[in-house]
Amino acid sequence: MAHCALEVADVFRSLGPGWHQSVNLSLGQLKVVSAIEQCRSAALGGHVLRCEGCAAIEVAYNSCRNRHCPKCQAAAARRWLEARQADLLPVEYYHVVFTLPAAISEIAYYNKAVIYGLLFDMAAETLRTIAADPKHLGAQIGATLVLHTWGSALTHHPHVHGIVPGGGLSPDRSRWVACRPGFFLPVRVLSRLFRRRFLEELEAVYHRGQLQFFGEHTELIDPGVFAKWLAPMRACEWVVYAKRPFAGPEAVLAYLSRYTHRVAISNQRLISLDERGVTFRWKDYRVDGRTRNKTMTLAANEFVRRFLLHVLPAGFHRIRHYGVLANPSRRENLSKIRALLHVALEAVDPDGDVSSCAAQPSFVCRHCGSPMIIIDMLQRSRPIRAPPPEQCHA
Score class of each variant (00 low, 15 high):
residue 274 D to P: 04
residue 86 A to S: 13
residue 243 K to G: 14
residue 270 L to S: 09
residue 22 S to Q: 11
residue 325 L to R: 10
residue 369 G to K: 06
residue 236 C to W: 02
residue 269 R to Y: 12
residue 77 A to E: 03
residue 157 H to L: 08
residue 95 H to Y: 12
residue 189 V to E: 03
residue 74 A to Y: 02
residue 313 P to T: 11
residue 180 R to Q: 04
residue 348 V to L: 00
residue 256 L to R: 04
residue 101 P to K: 13
residue 228 K to G: 07
residue 301 N to M: 04
residue 316 F to A: 03
residue 117 G to M: 08
residue 43 A to F: 02
residue 151 G to K: 01
residue 248 G to Q: 05
residue 93 Y to V: 01
residue 56 A to F: 00
residue 223 P to R: 08
residue 351 D to E: 14
residue 316 F to Q: 04
residue 376 D to T: 01
residue 54 C to A: 07
residue 77 A to V: 10
residue 173 R to I: 04
residue 56 A to V: 13
residue 86 A to E: 09
residue 171 P to G: 06
residue 362 S to R: 08
residue 62 N to I: 01
residue 331 R to S: 12
residue 168 G to N: 09
residue 115 I to F: 06
residue 51 C to Q: 01
residue 28 G to N: 10
residue 165 P to G: 10
residue 137 L to H: 06
residue 175 R to N: 08
residue 348 V to H: 05
residue 198 F to P: 07
residue 252 V to R: 03
residue 138 G to M: 04
residue 229 W to V: 15
residue 274 D to M: 02
residue 254 A to W: 01
residue 19 W to I: 01
residue 203 E to L: 13
residue 88 L to G: 10
residue 236 C to N: 05
residue 349 D to P: 00
residue 241 Y to C: 03
residue 146 V to D: 00
residue 385 R to Q: 15
residue 326 A to F: 06
residue 6 L to V: 09
residue 281 R to M: 13
residue 71 K to W: 00
residue 364 V to Y: 02
residue 10 D to Y: 05
residue 82 E to N: 12
residue 193 L to G: 05
residue 150 W to C: 07
residue 161 H to Q: 08
residue 11 V to K: 00
residue 52 E to T: 13
residue 203 E to R: 11
residue 209 G to E: 10
residue 351 D to K: 09
residue 223 P to H: 10
residue 194 F to C: 12
residue 230 L to V: 14
residue 45 G to C: 03
residue 78 R to V: 08
residue 219 E to V: 11
residue 198 F to A: 10
residue 343 V to S: 04
residue 67 R to L: 14
residue 72 C to I: 09
residue 214 F to T: 12
residue 348 V to A: 01
residue 66 N to R: 06
residue 297 T to G: 14
residue 191 S to V: 02
residue 254 A to L: 09
residue 40 R to T: 09
residue 368 C to N: 08
residue 326 A to W: 07
residue 82 E to T: 14
residue 220 L to V: 10
residue 83 A to R: 10
residue 218 T to D: 13
residue 39 C to R: 07
residue 112 K to R: 11
residue 136 H to L: 07
residue 200 E to L: 12
residue 350 P to N: 05
residue 180 R to S: 02
residue 36 I to K: 00
residue 146 V to L: 13
residue 199 L to A: 13
residue 270 L to T: 12
residue 343 V to I: 04
residue 276 R to H: 12
residue 359 A to F: 14
residue 258 R to E: 14
residue 21 Q to K: 15
residue 50 R to K: 11
residue 85 Q to I: 06
residue 8 V to L: 02
residue 166 G to R: 13
residue 183 F to N: 05
residue 63 S to K: 03
